[in-house]
């Protein structure tokens, strides 16, 4: 029997339809929820609630969970290859996505050594700098590559202890929405990863202006969208992350981090 799948948004650890009840057909065949600004609001609220506990997890534990996501993605490789159109290129993209997750899983407990420093200061102080997660990160995923692009942006943000509200690419949302099923079965606490699909012009302005979002990754935005997002982000001095590089790098993790410097008196 052919059971057709209902694609849903992933908000607060649950798969939900849009509160608006709307759907759209990105490729003319499958209905995908057309998320509204209220879905976005719910997702941000869920993310904000989940943030303290996720940031407080040990780096090792976050690494384990990211690694588990790699396992889950790998075990569903065939499904993703199908979603991406099949063939060698799709297979390469799925492999790449799995490798990205494994790679960032390894970085969770190594990042502080690379990004953190002990600073020489002219005084009786032990002075050190540590990376800390920024908070709620909005991610506008690029449409190409539909899976690997999403995974790169998500993994980099999650690796450092941030929580994420991601907008799936408007024209190709299925890999991103299915990726949510991978995250749902990877021990991520509810609300740490949220994935919304819908029209970008309906969601992006609200995401960019939302006072409770601390950073926005505009990897998938057009130049005009970036400009509008930057203007809207100014109200709460949101970090706007513009990376075009599609390779993985620990510096892409630090883009989502804030550096905290501590002055600790010594010899007193």
């Amino acid at each position: 029997m052919d059971v057709r799948k209902t694609y849903k948004l992933f908000v607060n650890g649950e798969f939900v339809r849009s509160e608006s009840g709307r759907a759209y057909r990105p490729d003319g065949s499958v209905n995908v929820p057309r998320g509204s600004r209220k879905d976005l609001r719910d997702a941000v609220r869920a993310a904000r609630t989940a943030f303290p506990a996720w940031a407080a997890r040990t780096a090792m534990n976050r690494g384990q969970i990211l690694y588990r996501a790699a396992e889950m993605l790998d075990s569903r490789g065939a499904q993703f290859i199908g979603l991406l159109g099949g063939g060698a290129k799709a297979r390469r993209e799925v492999d790449q996505a799995v490798e990205t997750l494994v790679w960032y899983a390894g970085w969770t407990d190594k990042l502080p050594q690379i990004a953190g420093t002990v600073n020489p200061v002219a005084g009786p102080y032990f002075n050190f700098t540590l990376p800390e997660p920024t908070g709620v990160v909005g991610i506008v995923a690029p449409g190409e590559p539909a899976l690997a692009g999403m995974v790169r942006r998500l993994a980099a943000a999650l690796c450092g202890g941030n929580v994420v509200v991601a907008l799936a690419p408007e024209s190709r949302p299925l890999p991103a929405l299915t990726l949510a099923e991978v995250f749902a079965t990877s021990d991520f606490p509810a609300g740490v990863v949220n994935v919304l699909s819908g029209q970008r012009r309906e969601l992006l302005p609200w995401l960019a202006a939302h006072m409770d979002v601390n950073a926005i990754d505009v990897a998938g935005c057009t130049l005009d969208e970036v400009k509008a997002a930057e203007a809207a982000a100014a109200d709460n001095v949101k970090r706007v992350i513009k990376v075009t590089a599609d390779e993985a790098s620990p510096y892409l993790i630090t883009a989502f981090m804030e550096m905290k410097t501590v002055w600790h008196p010594i010899g007193m």
Binding site: H210, D212, D235
Partner: peptide
């Protein structure tokens, strides 16, 4: 303001 708010403020 038409903008979703944050408890931080």
């Amino acid at each position: 303001t038409g903008v979703y708010q944050s408890g931080d403020y």
